[in-house]
Deep mutational scan, measured.
Amino acid sequence: YFQGQLNAMAHQIQEMFPQVPYHLVLQDLQLTRSVEITTDNILEGRI
């Protein structure tokens, strides 16, 4: 994955969860590489 793709995914998640800091979303995406998994992590309070 290149950074631009991760940034696009992070923006997509931020639209759904504007209360979660962008850098935390991006940090999780770098591990998961998945909008779905990061979204689940937010919903389950891991982020």
Rank of each mutant, 00 (worst) to 15 (best):
Y1E: 13
Y1W: 14
Y1R: 10
Y1I: 14
Y1S: 13
Y1D: 14
F2L: 13
F2P: 11
F2D: 14
Q3P: 13
Q3Y: 07
Q3S: 10
Q3F: 07
Q3R: 09
G4L: 14
G4I: 14
G4P: 08
G4W: 13
G4V: 12
G4A: 10
G4C: 11
G4E: 15
Q5A: 11
Q5W: 15
Q5E: 15
Q5G: 10
Q5P: 10
Q5I: 11
Q5D: 15
L6T: 04
L6P: 02
L6I: 10
L6W: 10
L6E: 04
L6S: 02
N7A: 14
N7S: 14
N7C: 12
N7E: 15
N7V: 14
N7L: 14
A8I: 13
M9W: 15
A10Q: 04
A10D: 00
H11M: 14
H11G: 08
H11K: 14
H11C: 08
H11D: 11
H11F: 11
H11Y: 11
H11W: 12
Q12L: 12
Q12D: 07
Q12W: 10
Q12C: 07
I13D: 00
I13L: 10
I13G: 00
Q14M: 15
Q14V: 14
Q14W: 15
Q14N: 10
E15V: 12
E15P: 02
E15R: 13
E15C: 10
E15N: 10
E15L: 15
E15M: 15
E15Y: 10
M16E: 06
M16R: 12
M16N: 06
M16S: 07
M16L: 12
M16W: 08
F17L: 02
F17G: 00
F17V: 01
F17D: 01
F17N: 02
F17R: 00
F17P: 00
P18M: 04
P18Q: 05
P18F: 03
Q19H: 15
Q19S: 12
Q19W: 15
Q19M: 12
Q19Y: 15
Q19I: 06
Q19A: 10
Q19T: 11
V20M: 08
V20P: 02
V20A: 05
P21D: 08
P21C: 08
P21F: 05
Y22H: 07
Y22D: 01
Y22F: 14
Y22T: 06
Y22A: 06
Y22N: 04
Y22V: 07
H23K: 08
H23E: 12
H23I: 10
H23R: 08
H23F: 10
L24C: 06
L24K: 07
L24M: 08
L24I: 10
L24H: 06
L24P: 01
L24T: 07
V25Q: 00
V25W: 01
V25P: 00
V25D: 00
L26P: 00
L26I: 11
L26R: 05
L26Q: 04
L26C: 05
L26T: 03
L26W: 09
Q27P: 00
Q27C: 09
Q27I: 10
Q27K: 12
D28G: 01
D28L: 06
D28I: 04
D28V: 04
L29Y: 00
L29H: 01
L29Q: 00
L29G: 02
L29N: 00
L29E: 01
L29W: 04
L29A: 01
Q30K: 13
Q30H: 10
Q30V: 12
Q30D: 07
L31Q: 12
L31P: 01
T32M: 02
T32I: 01
R33W: 15
R33H: 15
R33K: 14
R33P: 03
S34V: 03
S34Q: 03
S34K: 04
S34I: 03
S34G: 02
S34R: 04
V35D: 03
V35P: 08
V35N: 04
V35A: 09
V35I: 09
V35K: 09
V35L: 10
E36R: 10
E36A: 13
E36M: 09
E36I: 09
E36G: 08
I37D: 09
I37F: 07
I37L: 11
I37A: 09
T38Y: 00
T38H: 02
T38N: 00
T38S: 03
T38I: 01
T38A: 00
T39G: 04
T39H: 05
T39Y: 07
D40C: 15
D40S: 15
N41P: 02
N41Y: 03
N41S: 04
N41E: 00
N41M: 02
N41R: 08
N41K: 06
I42N: 02
I42K: 00
I42D: 01
L43V: 09
L43A: 07
L43D: 02
L43F: 06
L43C: 08
E44H: 14
E44Y: 12
E44L: 12
E44R: 14
G45H: 06
G45F: 05
G45T: 02
G45V: 04
R46H: 07
R46T: 06
I47S: 02
I47V: 11
I47N: 02
I47P: 03
